[in-house]
Design a binder for these strands. Structure first.
Lengths: 336, 336
DNA sequence: TTGTATGCGTTATCAT
DNA sequence: ATGATAACGCATACAA
C-alpha cells in the first residue's frame, strides 16, 4: 500500500507537508495542498491508522465487553453504542464474554493490548485482578448495565425498581396473590436489584414472598424453563410468574406451552425486558421496558468525557412498565 | 504503560531477548527466560499490539460489514463469525452498513485504514469504487450471504432454492393457490434469488404468478407491513403470503393483526428466515431456516485461507423448510 | 545464547 | 511555508 513517502514523492513535497495537509494542522500553500491531494487521489492513498496510533498514542477505538450479543438486550445495546461512537468518531470492538470471567478477561486483555482509548464493560460477577489493575492504572473504564461493588468506576445503568413496583401493583390489582419470580444471578448487580425490588414491592402490598416462589436463574433460556417447571410442579403453584430477563422468559414460555397451560388463564406471565416480538405472542406479553438505546448512548458519552479527562459521574435511567395481556388484563390495558 | 524497554531493564537483558521469550521465536536460556517472565508479571506488562502490527504488517483482525446487527439473522451471523475468528486467533470489528452504500464504504474505508488482515462483506446493492479497488489490489475479501456480479470474489452464502420449492409444494398440498410473495430488494442477490426460486417453483406447480402478488419490499419491517396491506387490499387477496425475510414478516404480522385477520384461516403465512420466537407465535410460523452459524464459520475459514495465500473457492449451503402451523397444517407437521 | 541496530508509517519538533 | 529528522514500541537481521 502507498505510504506518505509515496505521496510526498509523487507530489514533489516532503512527508511533513503531506501530513500537514492530511491533518490540516498547519496552514499550507493552496498550490502545494492541491498537488498533495491530487497525489493522494491518484495513488488511492489511505493513511495507516496503525502507524498513526503508535505515534499519537490514540486509536479512536473503544472496547465493548458484553454478555452475549445473541441476547436481544445486548444486541440493541451494542447497536446504540456503535451509533453513538461513530457519531463521535470512534470505532468499537465488541467481545462476547458469555458471562464467564475468564472470557471477559480474555477480551479485556486483548482490548488493552490493542490500546483502545476506553472500555465499556458489562462486568461478570467477580472482580478480576485485571479489572482491578485497570482501575488502579486509571484507564478510562465505564461499567455498563451492571456495577461492581467496592470499585470507584462510573456506571451507566437502569433502575427498574419503580417499574417493578408498578408491575407488582398491577398484578395485585388483577387479583394475583401467588406471584413467583425467576431471578437472575445474585452475583450480578442487575440480578440482585431486580430481586430486591420485587420482594420489597411484594411486602409493600402485604403479599408474602415464599422462598419456593423465588427461583434462581442465570439469565439464560434453559434456567428459565427449569425454574418455570419447578414452580409449576409445586403443590400450590403460583398464579403469576415474573421472569427476570427475556431469555429466561423464552424458556418459561417453552415450559408453559409444553404443559399445555394457557396464559393468563392458568398462569400469568410478565417479563423484565421488552422485545418487538412480545406484541405478537399469544397473548402479548406484559413487560418492563428498559431504555436500551439511551443506555448505550449515555455510556459512550460518559466514556468520551472520561477519555478527555473530564470528571464524570454515574447515570441511572428509569425503566417503565408496558401493560399488555399476559397477566389477565381485560382489554390490553395501555397500548404498547 | 510499560514497554519492552522497561521489561528489559527490569530483567537485566536486552529488548531483543524480551521479544524472543514473548514470542518464543528463538530458544532462550531457561534462567533468562524466567527473569523476563518475572519482570513481565511484576510490571503487568502487556505487549503493544499497535506497535507489533506496524512492525509485522499484520493486525490479527478481520472486518465484518453487515446490514444491521439488529436483524436477528445478522446478529447470529456476527456471533458465529466472532466465535470462529477467536478460535483462529483473530479479533473482529463490526460495521453496520444499514444497507447504505455510503455507510458500507465508510466502514470499509476505516477498516482498510486500520489495516485489517481481511474483510468479510455483505455487499449492498452497488459495486462501489472502493470495493472495486480492493478487488484490484488483491486484498483478502470474501462476500458473505450475498454476492456481487462481475467481481472475482469468493462468496459464502445460502441457496434457499430447494427449500423454497419445497415450501411452495407444501402450500399447494395444503390447498393454497393464490400465493403471494413479499420480495427483498431486486438489487440484492439474496432478494433476486428468492424471488426467482419462488416464481420458478410456482410455475413448476402450474400456478400462475400474478404480478400483483409480487410485492417489492426492502428487507425492513415497514415494507413488509406495507406490502401485506396492499396484498390484502386486492380485489382478490392471496390465500397465502410468503415473506422474504424475518423483519418484513414482523411487519406483515403487524398488518394482519391490525386488520383482525386470523392465521391461517384468513391468510396463511410463511417466512424466509427462522427465529427462536417463531415457535411461540400464534400460530407458530412455518419458515425456511438458514444454516446461519455454519455460514459464519465457513466464511471465516475461507477468509483465513485467503489471508494465508491459499486458493479458495465459494461455498453454498442449503436452507431447509421448517413446517409449523401458520399455513393450515393439520397437526403442526414435522416438529421444529 | 544474547546484544546492537534498523525500520515499519506516522506526527511533531526544530530548523530554514 | 516547508523540509529534515527523531521518536513511538516492537521484531528481526546481523554481530558477537
Amino acid at each position: 500500500m502507498a505510504s506518505v513517502k509515496d505521496v510526498a514523492r509523487h507530489a514533489g513535497v516532503s512527508v511533513a507537508t503531506v501530513s500537514r495537509v492530511l491533518n490540516d494542522s498547519v496552514p499550507v500553500l493552496p498550490g502545494t495542498r492541491d498537488r498533495v491531494l491530487a497525489a493522494v487521489a491518484e495513488l488511492g492513498y489511505r493513511p495507516n491508522a496503525v502507524a498513526r496510533s503508535l505515534r499519537t498514542d490514540a486509536t479512536r477505538t473503544i472496547g465493548l465487553v458484553i454478555g452475549d450479543i445473541l441476547n436481544p438486550f445486548f444486541t440493541e445495546l451494542a447497536r446504540a453504542v456503535e451509533d453513538q461512537a461513530r457519531a463521535l468518531g470512534y470505532s468499537v470492538v465488541i467481545g462476547n464474554a458469555d458471562e464467564r470471567p475468564d472470557r471477559q478477561d480474555h477480551y479485556v486483555g486483548t482490548l488493552l493490548e490493542r490500546r483502545v482509548d476506553g472500555l465499556l464493560l458489562c462486568p461478570t460477577a467477580e472482580v478480576t485482578p485485571l479489572v482491578r489493575d485497570m482501575v488502579r492504572d486509571g484507564r478510562p473504564l465505564v461499567f455498563l448495565d451492571r456495577t461492581l461493588p467496592g470499585l470507584d468506576v462510573p456506571a451507566v445503568r437502569v433502575d427498574g425498581g419503580a417499574a417493578i413496583a408498578e408491575l407488582v401493583r398491577h398484578l395485585c390489582a388483577l387479583g394475583h396473590r401467588r406471584v413467583a419470580f425467576i431471578t437472575g444471578p445474585a452475583l450480578l448487580s442487575t440480578g440482585r436489584e431486580r430481586t430486591e425490588a420485587f420482594t420489597a414491592a411484594m411486602r409493600a402490598h402485604g403479599l408474602p414472598v415464599r422462598p419456593e416462589y423465588l427461583e434462581a436463574g442465570d439469565f439464560q433460556a434453559a434456567s428459565g424453563r427449569a425454574g418455570a417447571a419447578r414452580l409449576l410442579d409445586l403443590p400450590e403453584p403460583p398464579d403469576a410468574i415474573f421472569v427476570g430477563d427475556n431469555l429466561m422468559a423464552l424458556g418459561a414460555l417453552d415450559e408453559i406451552r409444553a404443559r399445555g397451560l394457557r396464559i393468563p388463564a392458568d398462569v400469568a406471565l410478565a417479563c423484565y425486558d421488552d422485545l418487538p416480538w412480545f406484541t405478537h405472542l399469544d397473548p402479548p406479553v406484559t413487560a418492563v421496558a428498559q431504555p436500551v438505546r439511551e443506555l448505550g448512548r449515555r455510556a459512550v458519552r460518559v466514556l468520551a468525557e472520561r477519555m478527555e479527562g473530564r470528571p464524570v459521574s454515574s447515570v441511572v435511567l428509569p425503566a417503565r412498565l408496558v401493560v399488555r395481556r399476559s397477566c389477565g388484563e381485560r382489554d390490553g390495558g395501555v397500548p404498547a
